[in-house]
Write a protein that binds this DNA or RNA. Sequence first.
DNA 1: TCCATTATGATTGTCCCT
DNA 2: AGGGACAATCATAATGGA
Length: 617
Amino acid sequence: MDKHLSEEDSDNIDWDTEDELEIQDTTLSSCRDLRTNGQYAISGDGEASSSSVPGQSTFIQKFLVMGFSEESIAKAIEQNGENSDLVLDALLTLKQNFPSCPPDIATSQAIEDSPEEQPSASPHLEPCINSDDSSSEYNENFLDDVYEEDSWSSDSDYCTNSAKQCYVKEESSSLSEKEQTILFLANMGYPVEEVSIAMERCGPEASLAELTDFICAAQMARAEDPYLPEDVKPKLNHGSGGYKKRKMFNQLCKSKKPRAIFDEETIRLPKPMIGFGVPTESVPAIVRRTIPEQAFGPPFFYYENVALAPKGVWDTISRFLYDIEPEFVDSKYFCATARKRGYIHNLPIENRFPLLPLPPRTINEALPLTKKWWPSWDPRTKLNCLQTAIGSARLTDRIRKAVEAFDGEPPMRVQKFVLDQCRKWNLVWVGRNKVAPLEPDEFEMLLGFPKNHTRGGGISRTDRYKSLGNSFQVDTVAYHLSVLKDMFPNGMNVLSLFSGIGGAEVALYRLGIQLNNVVSVEKSEVNRNIVRSWWEQTNQRGNLIDFDDVQQLNGDRLEQLIDSFGGFDLLIGGSPCNNLAGSNRVSRDGLEGKESSLFYDYVRILDLVKSIMSRQR
DNA sequence: TCCATTATGATTGTCCCT
DNA sequence: AGGGACAATCATAATGGA
């Protein structure tokens, strides 16, 4: 692993790696060890991969992350083999035992809580500080401090002795009936506070149906209350509305096949997709939002992924990130190319400002040479999303031949074929009857990167497209981050996960925010080289520390980093979209897919950073 | 081995009509 | 409500040549 470290800091941080390598041979014999292996172990296969936990560990890891005990997992695997669905069903059937619900309902609910829907009422699993043996002494002291106030961890089924070593997640069986009911309803999306109120008002014997009716009625009453401020009212017209929840529940209790019902539960995309506002459109209304107290910084955090993910994915992401409403923005409101993305962050949204100069916002302005050849029957003014692959020469040849066959305008049928392909592959007109895919430097320009940002230094043309296609649109992200400029006049310490080609760093730099310490995690070596090269070329005075694997950022390492420069001001990153993106024909497996499940590492690291920093304050 | 090239749909959502 | 047309989509894997 190559670690770049500036001279100043190299003495302050303990960069030993032996402790990580030792973990490999630990047996899966105890809760602590299992979790260490499954969730946090450094991969030992030598690849620069962020998800290269070998075979069984990966399989077990999925379920550990969900909070199941290792005994249950082992049992379920024994009975069902390594079949995710079967094992999950078995685990959930074992685990769930809701008192007010018939057994078949409880099971249905349980089965329904497939990974995609799984996160429970409190998805914020207490962070498990990596506790490989070489550092357990430190961790025990550390965690006692951090989780002093945590009353739940002491009697957890998962953690029997010194305990708070593991993710602490309560088994239903050890909860009171009341708590189980709350958990169940919270699982369905009802706010915990409202459930509590409903239980008080309806009495201890109330059925779930009564409770949901009460909550629903209360929500509708508040929604219609003209004296309540808008941001306090429940959004009944959204997917998360009480009415739909109640309907869902009632159907669930009757239905044999509840899956379809739960699949209806999705966050809806705004139209137009301008999030909480963009500089170029008139602001829809006064946007105000409330962020849960838990979500407040420090640090600020900013998470990004594709907006058009499979159903339920954003619900899950949001639940793991404090139920903050995602801000969905299409970058076509910032530049000449579309890029529909969701952002979950705890940044203020007032007084944002855009990067200057404002980038060209039409194809015409961005690519002036295409104007001469642009046929009148091609109405496009914006490009579609820049992806990781480009159209083939064969295709552009077919298009040339198709258009060439006619003197004036081709017939509608040909026009449609050509336009469909041009939209699909983002082709532009570069000559008479000639279309072509965009060049890498045009990708850079459209995405807000400096020219040649990804050029040279050993990167292939194919990889340039790939890295750029996976990147932020800088102007969009910078607009959201702009509120930080006044807050950090002396610069920031940034933890950048899945950095790619450094979209976050470039955005902050272009905002004129000084980068004091940047810890960057990126598995691709060429991408790390690009960021380091940019760092040096822009004469940064701060420190750039990079890692190749998120698994390396365990509690120890984060503690060291935070100690060495006093904490992070911003945690930013977009986790891999491979298994979420619509372009993926092969493995669009959702959030639990091979790459996209690294989202849970974002959550893990965010929780760790928050814990360590709250302890130090 | 690296790199360039190429072909490979399905899942969503929206809109419009009945 | 419901069906059908329409449109968009941070990709993967196989192949062949250098």
